[in-house]
Amino acid sequence: MHPNQATLDKFYAAFARLDSDTMATCYAADAQFDDEAFSLRGHREVTGMWHMLCDVTKAKGADVWKLSYSGIEADARTGKSHWEADYRFSATGRMVHNIIDGEFEFNEQGLIKRHRDRFNFWAWSRQALGTPGLLLGWTPFLRSKVRAQAAANLQKYLAQRKT
């Protein structure tokens, strides 16, 4: 197993346990993360997002949290993963089953420098938001609104966390 594959396995095993401290050790100082809700730059923002998501899940949804992962592959430069998460979306209390594919780039020290998760936003929004997600989940309007709210939530969390 390539060491970068072991890094991804460590990351997802920690995520399954909601261990954001261990997840944070997998990222480079200049890490970048992008998905349908977040576009983050730097270790503080990227790992802050994972701390926030894990903390919220522990507080409001640990009873239903489940993460499975597969297809972990990596070499000296890149990696990929497939993961699925079952959780309660904290803003609405609705249950979500999200299916995600991750793409990674590693630095020379074997830390994640770029992480891109892709999932079907419309499918996610139908589950997480209900009728508004069903009707508007395909629109740039709702995607922008979700991104803005996610960014605001993260900034508030980071301000309170002060790390």
Rank of each mutant, 00 (worst) to 15 (best):
85 A>S: 10
73 E>V: 14
89 F>L: 02
77 R>G: 05
72 I>G: 01
37 A>S: 11
74 A>L: 03
70 S>F: 05
96 V>F: 11
53 L>T: 13
76 A>W: 00
69 Y>N: 06
48 G>T: 03
82 H>C: 11
71 G>D: 15
97 H>I: 11
77 R>C: 03
64 V>C: 02
44 R>W: 07
92 T>G: 11
43 H>A: 13
51 H>G: 04
96 V>W: 10
54 C>V: 02
67 L>E: 04
94 R>S: 06
73 E>G: 08
50 W>E: 08
59 A>E: 08
45 E>I: 07
66 K>P: 07
67 L>G: 02
88 R>N: 00
40 L>K: 02
52 M>C: 09
90 S>M: 12
66 K>F: 12
57 T>E: 04
54 C>E: 04
68 S>R: 14
86 D>I: 13
80 K>S: 14
38 F>T: 01
52 M>L: 15
87 Y>Q: 01
68 S>D: 15
48 G>L: 04
84 E>S: 14
48 G>R: 02
93 G>M: 00
85 A>G: 14
89 F>Q: 01
92 T>Q: 07
79 G>C: 00
37 A>D: 06
83 W>G: 05
59 A>P: 08
34 D>Y: 10
41 R>N: 14
80 K>F: 06
79 G>E: 06
81 S>P: 02
67 L>P: 02
45 E>V: 03
43 H>C: 10
65 W>F: 07
75 D>C: 01
93 G>D: 01
82 H>K: 13
74 A>M: 01
53 L>H: 08
73 E>W: 09
65 W>D: 04
79 G>T: 07
67 L>F: 02
93 G>F: 00
51 H>D: 14
36 E>Y: 08
37 A>G: 10
41 R>L: 11
91 A>H: 07
81 S>R: 03
40 L>I: 08
43 H>V: 13
44 R>S: 13
34 D>K: 14
76 A>R: 06
57 T>R: 01
69 Y>C: 02
41 R>F: 11
85 A>R: 09
42 G>A: 06
37 A>P: 02
43 H>M: 09
36 E>Q: 14
64 V>L: 01
71 G>P: 05
47 T>N: 08
59 A>L: 12
92 T>V: 06
89 F>I: 01
85 A>T: 12
49 M>I: 05
46 V>C: 13
94 R>V: 04
90 S>D: 09
67 L>M: 08
85 A>P: 07
44 R>H: 12
54 C>N: 09
71 G>R: 07
91 A>K: 11
41 R>V: 13
92 T>A: 08
54 C>L: 06
45 E>H: 07
88 R>H: 02
72 I>S: 01
43 H>T: 10
58 K>Q: 15
45 E>S: 10
79 G>R: 02
85 A>F: 07
50 W>F: 15
72 I>Q: 04
55 D>N: 10
71 G>L: 06
39 S>A: 13
44 R>A: 15
42 G>L: 06
84 E>Y: 07
36 E>N: 11
49 M>F: 05
63 D>C: 00
73 E>M: 11
74 A>V: 04
34 D>S: 14
96 V>I: 12
68 S>K: 13
67 L>Y: 04
84 E>I: 15
46 V>L: 09
48 G>W: 05
78 T>R: 10
48 G>I: 09
40 L>H: 04
35 D>T: 10
61 G>M: 01
45 E>M: 12
67 L>W: 01
39 S>L: 09
77 R>Q: 12
63 D>N: 00
